[in-house]
Each structure stands twice: as C-alpha cells, then as structure tokens.
Amino acid sequence: MKEIVIGNNESDKRLDGFLKSYLPNASMGFIYKMLRKKNITLNGKKASGTEKLASNDVICIFFADETLEKFRGISTDSTQSGNNSNSRSDIQDYCKREISSYKKIGELKVIYENKHVIFVDKPAGLLSQKSKDTDDSLNDWLIGYMLTNNLITPSELETYKPSICNRLDRNTSGLVICAKSLLGARTMNNMLKDRTLHKYYRTIVTGQISESSELKGFLYKDEKKNKVFIKTSDPGDDRYSYIETEYKPVRYYYDLDMTLLEVKLITGKPHQIRAHLQSIGHPIIGDVKYGGSPVKGLKYQLLHSYRLVLPKDLNDVFCDIAGKEFIAELPDTFGSIIGKG
C-alpha cells in the first residue's frame, strides 16, 4: 500500500489528474476502475476522481509493489536486495544528480526570491533546460538549489518538480523566472500567456537606430538547422507563427557605429529578437547565425534579459511582487565593448 499526503504543490488539482500524473502508465479507464473498487481511496473513502485535492488530503493506493512500479514507469531490478523500494532509490539518485549539477554550476545571482518564485540571472553559456541527459542546466540548478537549502524534499519531487517558466537561448544571459511551487508556475505562466508580465532585453546592434518602433511578422523554425525564418506578411502556412517585437534606442555609439537597444518581447518565439532585428538590417553583434558582425573576444550574440515588470493586479499571495520591476544588470561583456560611460 502506498500512502500519499497532499502538499501545497498538489492542492487544487483534480484527483483523477493527479493520479494520471502519478501513474503515467495507467489508463484513465483503469484508474476509474480502481477508484470504483476502492483500490484507490481519498481520506479513507471511496472517490469518483472529480474531487479537488486540498493540502493534507491522504490518498491510499492498494497495489502490490510490483504493480505500483509498473504503472509509475519504474523499472524493476530482480537482483536488487534490501527493503528499500525501487521508487525510493530512483528519486534518491535523481536528487543526487540535481545536487551535483547545482554544485557544478555554482552560485548564481538571485535577483528576487519568495515562497513561490525565484528570479535568477542566468549567465551566457548555461542551458535553460538540458537537451541531453548529461547536460547541466538552469532547471537542474533550481532543483539542486532547493534540495540543498531544504526548500523541497525528495518525496515532494515525486509529484511536483520546480521548473523555469521562460526559456533563454544558451548564450543569452539575464533574468529567468523559476517556479518553486505549483502556484508559482501557474501564476507566472498565466501572466506570460496573457502578456501581462512584460519582458525587456538589452542588446547591441550594428548601425544607427534613432527611433522607437514596433515589428510584426511571421516566424518559422527549421528544427534541423536550429534556425528561424521571418516573413513580413502572412504566408498562409501553418508552420509560421505570428510574432511582435518592440524596441527603442538607448544610445548610439558613433565611433563604433553600434546602437544599444532595449527590446520588449511581445510574443515569445525561439530566436525572435535575433531574427527580427536581422530582418530590418540591424543584426545583433556577435550573432553570426543571423548576420551579426564578429567582434573580437565575443563568441555569441550579445543579448541580455534585462528587466521584468509585473502587473499590479495580483492576488494577495503575490502582493510582494505586484507592480514591481526587477533588473539584472548588464554583464561585463557589454562594458568591454561600449565602455563604462
């Protein structure tokens, strides 16, 4: 028998949805059958699956260990001895890997942190999410950080894994929103979807830009080439997504023929800023993939997620960040190119 005590990260979920995430290899038909037969109970009683979970609710699953492991997708090693279940061993190994990634990446600058979210200044060169199992990413750093600082327990990771909410390219630096709780993830992702949370970037482009403007277009990403292509008018092709980008000049450097820009990302598609600026003849310096000029000592696009502005009308849980602005200062690379002035 497996007993699960619902925590804050699982509360407000429907029981059937929770069970499907906990038992990914079980069909919904099987789950409903187990509920009807009381092989799965909620607070000691028969449940339909439509109930909304609350903190401290208790779910009991009356399966044999082998059956539970099968529906959880945990491989069984018949040669393993001892009393610890494979599921416990599996999560312990996972935690060790995440803590190892956290230590390997090292300390990162935390711009702001509360119970539900953490805003981190990601350095260029660090992946937001791993692309293969051997990668170390900001997402791994987040979980390792929370485990190391006792902000989450291994058992809690069985039903909720903290994650980033906005993804930056490997070589784009700056602010990343990380969700420590399910409520934090839901709230931040809803704001990103509704475009009530505003993201601003700083970058340096070739040539002079003297006026603010708004760019609109349609973007398609070629996954094999890992490159996007933009059309200014609707091509009538479902592969293309609508994109919108705003920018304003901060300063023009006459001797360098470069402009420091602040860019507001209205939509959030892969490589959007890089390709949109190239499309108007002002590519980002160092961004050779999208027409940028090579710069000595710079091996990647100089793009930085500079500030976040949150809406004022947040609920009481997030009153500490409602209407606030958060800034990740420009990395030294900017100053080495345009000077400190």
Score class of each variant (00 low, 15 high):
Thr50His: 12
Val205Ser: 02
Leu108Asn: 08
Lys216Val: 15
Asn83Gln: 07
Lys103Ser: 12
Glu113Val: 14
Asn39Pro: 01
Ile31Ala: 07
Leu142Val: 00
Thr50Glu: 10
Glu156Leu: 06
Ile4His: 06
Gly236Lys: 01
Lys193Leu: 08
Thr232Leu: 10
Tyr240Met: 10
Ile204Pro: 00
Tyr242Asp: 10
Glu10Arg: 01
Ile285Gln: 05
Ile59Ser: 06
Phe62Thr: 15
Lys46Ala: 12
Arg170Pro: 11
Phe326Lys: 13
Pro311His: 02
Asp316Asn: 12
Glu113His: 09
Cys319Ala: 11
Lys216Tyr: 06
Ile6Ser: 02
Lys132Ser: 15
Asp65Trp: 00
Lys103Cys: 13
Gly7His: 03
Leu260Asp: 15
Gly144Arg: 01
Gly341Ile: 11
Ser137Asn: 02
Ile285Pro: 05
Arg36Leu: 14
Cys95Gly: 09
Cys165Tyr: 00
Leu175Cys: 01
Asp287Phe: 06
Lys115Pro: 04
Gly49Thr: 09
Gln278Trp: 05
Ile143Tyr: 01
Gly106Val: 10
Glu158Ala: 09
Ser212Leu: 06
Asn84Arg: 15
Ser213Pro: 02
Cys60Leu: 14
Leu215Cys: 04
Ile118Met: 00
Gly291Met: 01
Ser155Arg: 09
Thr172Asp: 01
Asn150Asp: 15
Phe326Trp: 04
Leu330Val: 11
Ile6Asp: 02
Ile285Met: 04
Glu246Met: 11
Gly217Trp: 06
